[in-house]
Design a protein around this nucleic acid. Structure first.
Lengths: 196, 196
DNA sequence: TCTTGCTATGCACCTTGTTGCATAGCAAGC
DNA sequence: GCTTGCTATGCAACAAGGTGCATAGCAAGA
């Protein structure tokens, strides 16, 4: 299970509470791994029991207290072991591709609106990534650290570049899909005919 | 749940047994939706109980008999309803991206072999797609059917083009990842130091 | 005062997905 | 006769993920 490891990586990048992790999973990490706050709290509890993370109660003023989690040595070891073990290339699940092939047995043209909606979502996400890239990686590292490479920064950047490449590819492909769908007349259900 | 609908689409393209569907999910459909034979048999059973599919016992010689499933009218309606309902853009889960960001806290260079393995898997899949594209879509549709568009064929092709674009994007990105990882010295664990 | 809304944590239940195993027909080879 | 291997279907148990709901502190505004 990689949710464990995604949380460990996030906590190594910066310790935080379950709530804060859930916010991160709506942003940066969430671009390549999704999780609800329920899953996160559950996994944190289990990892605490296994000694992978340490907890610290943090009193707060003006808002409820929180539990700040950080990675324990056993957690680092578990992450190292996972990094060293080979994993299978991801198994994809594209609902939209199922819909597109399914549209052949319904009305292809009626799918155009849905595809446009997805295209817009990918455009929005791309724009968001590009803003983040300029903000976080627009300038060269830090003025004083001209020598050694900052692994955390460089690797975060290459993952972000992957996200950007993915969104661009998706937008181009969805344009292709739209052009293909547009070649069909509305109401061309192969079974019920043009009249529905 | 889209597995139901993926199975319905596959059965509309061609009726078949659970076993045959499982084989398809290792090939064409499996490129954008994965399922084991266990899931398929379970879903087929449920869809049969709901009247979405019809079953026909097919005696076979030289091998065990099979049950051939086909889509019933209620199944077509369920598929139509799903096609008309908006879905959320997919939630991605990229283990490899978690590994890449995690490598910043371990030895980045030690991830090179794993990334190369994934790159090769994507090259293999791309080659496989391209062979299939030439085989199935290399020639224009059918000589006699020069008039109306074949929705099933065109939409299968645009989905395949999406798979091809995805694999090409991944290969390019993994080249970028490899170039990035190569800039780190082996054994540069930020905590244990170069000596390990 | 009451409501709204954000922060913060968590339980219970249900659905999905995965793993391991079991059964059985039939063919081919040793 | 025995084993191996492919076709074909399925159960049981478990792991993972998702939905709905509950609780609670605190601030701001109607």
């Amino acid at each position: 299970m990689a949710l464990d490891h995604a949380i460990l990586v996030s906590l190594l990048e910066k310790p935080g509470s379950g709530y804060e992790l859930a916010r991160r999973f709506e942003r940066s990490i969430g671009y390549f791994w999704t999780a609800t706050h329920q899953q996160i709290y559950r996994v944190l509890k289990r990892m605490e029991a296994e000694g992978w993370v340490d907890v610290r109660d943090v009193p707060q003023y003006g808002r409820p207290d929180k539990k700040e989690y950080s990675v324990a040595p056993a957690g680092r070891e578990a992450l190292s072991a996972w990094l060293a073990a080979p994993i299978e290339p991801e198994s994809v699940r594209h609902d939209l591709a199922v819909k597109i092939r399914g549209a052949a047995f319904d009305d292809p043209a009626s799918l155009i609106g849905e595809v446009e909606r997805h295209r817009q979502a990918h455009r929005d996400r791309l724009a968001h990534y590009l803003v983040g890239e300029t903000r976080d990686f627009g300038q060269p590292p830090e003025p004083e650290a001209a020598g050694p490479l900052d692994a955390e920064r460089e690797l975060q950047h290459v993952v972000l570049r992957g996200g950007i490449a993915y969104e661009r590819m998706m937008i181009d492909w969805l344009d292709d899909v739209l052009a293909t769908l547009a070649r069909f007349e509305p109401g061309t259900d192969p079974d019920t005919g043009p009249a529905g």
